[in-house]
Design a protein around this nucleic acid. Structure first.
Lengths: 195, 195
DNA sequence: AAAAAAAGAATGAACATTCATTTTTTTATA
DNA sequence: TATAAAAAAATGAATGTTCATTCTTTTTTT
């Protein structure tokens, strides 16, 4: 196996262990020693790949966030109508959050705690630009409510995190009908009345 | 000052310090020594009021959750129409989350991390019963969409947490118009089409 | 043989909790 | 009511553990 590949494998193992352990115990209850053990390396080795624990978790966050947005926009293109474009992105995000729970949970925890540096969080947000652009177009066309993007996000995308979390905790179950209902709620909360 | 009052004051000071510090640093990055310092008691004194750190944070969670639901339902009564009842509760919750950020932030962190015992979390959820009852009535009357309560909550109430968080982080600003827009989004996501 | 990567053990700081005293409050007695 | 003994509450310092990070040595790669 090439040297570079080996390094990448090790880095990935460390990142996966971090996600797994932080999901179960939280950032500060996840010792470097356990991360090392789960990734099958020595604690000292972590410091060859990451500056320190905070850097490890920041990098993990940005990587997961990238995966998330890459997945979200993979099938989207700006030629779609606003409604079709939104549906496309929404369903991809739903798929990601519901199928890739590990990553979804990790993001939920990062986004709701002081675990991540503010600058890393800021960088994570920028990835959503295509969705914001779509909304701006929708507002111009009179299809999307003329309100702040934060509001649109809060009511159409963010609820997916809540549903994922409850699904994960076993308090609600996701079937096709449920997801279609969720999409309808999302769309009715952001579209202009009568559209 | 009566002895009992003094104890209550101390317990409150400890709980307030816990909320403040956990909001800023997270549960595990909040040492008992700092909580004690902020509450102006000795670390040892904490253990006269709470069994251990986990008990302190569980109790704090349940107290804040109680405050939250008491506030939410204070002006509600079951004789109101479904739409009026929902509006009443929604606005109270919005007021709580936006005006009492300290408590709101704390709940957001508890609800999105493994910080709280599962049993405490379960107990916290039960407090929302009146809202669930209202929704059941709304479904019978054909006013509320016939979907799971989790879905209704995800799209009408939970977004308030996201907005509070972003307001807190300075990324969006809340004025009257914003809140009215938010209410409209919430209502359109759960009401039956055309109602 | 030299350089790079990885390892395990070591270090020192931080932490939750407990311990031994001191301070405050309550109770009982005159 | 005043006082002192007893009980309760509170304290600061001590304890033993856990942890992030570093150091020195060993293993692997070039």
């Amino acid at each position: 196996m090439a040297k570079l590949q080996k390094s990448i494998d090790k880095k990935n193992a460390l990142i996966n262990a971090t996600i797994e352990l932080v999901n179960n115990n939280g950032f500060h209850a996840t010792p470097m020693s356990k991360i090392a053990k789960m990734a099958k390396v020595s604690p000292a080795t972590i410091y060859l790949y990451f500056e320190n624990k905070q850097d490890l978790v920041n990098q993990t966050y940005l990587l997961v966030k990238s995966k998330y947005t890459a997945y979200a926009f993979a099938t989207y293109n700006a030629n779609l109508s606003v409604e079709e474009g939104f549906r496309t992105i929404w369903y991809r995000i739903a798929e990601f959050k519901f199928n890739d729970c590990k990553n979804g949970l990790f993001l939920a925890q990062c986004d709701n705690t002081p675990m991540i540096d503010e600058s890393s969080r800021q960088e994570g947000i920028r990835h959503l630009q295509p969705l914001l652009d779509l909304w701006e177009r929708g507002k111009k066309e009179g299809i999307i409510k003329p309100v702040s993007n934060y509001l649109l996000y809060a009511y159409s995308i963010n609820p997916l995190s809540f549903l994922m979390l409850n699904n994960q905790r076993g308090t609600c179950t996701l079937d096709e009908q449920f997801i279609e209902d969720a999409y309808q709620s999302a769309w009715s909360s952001i579209k202009c009345e009568g559209k």
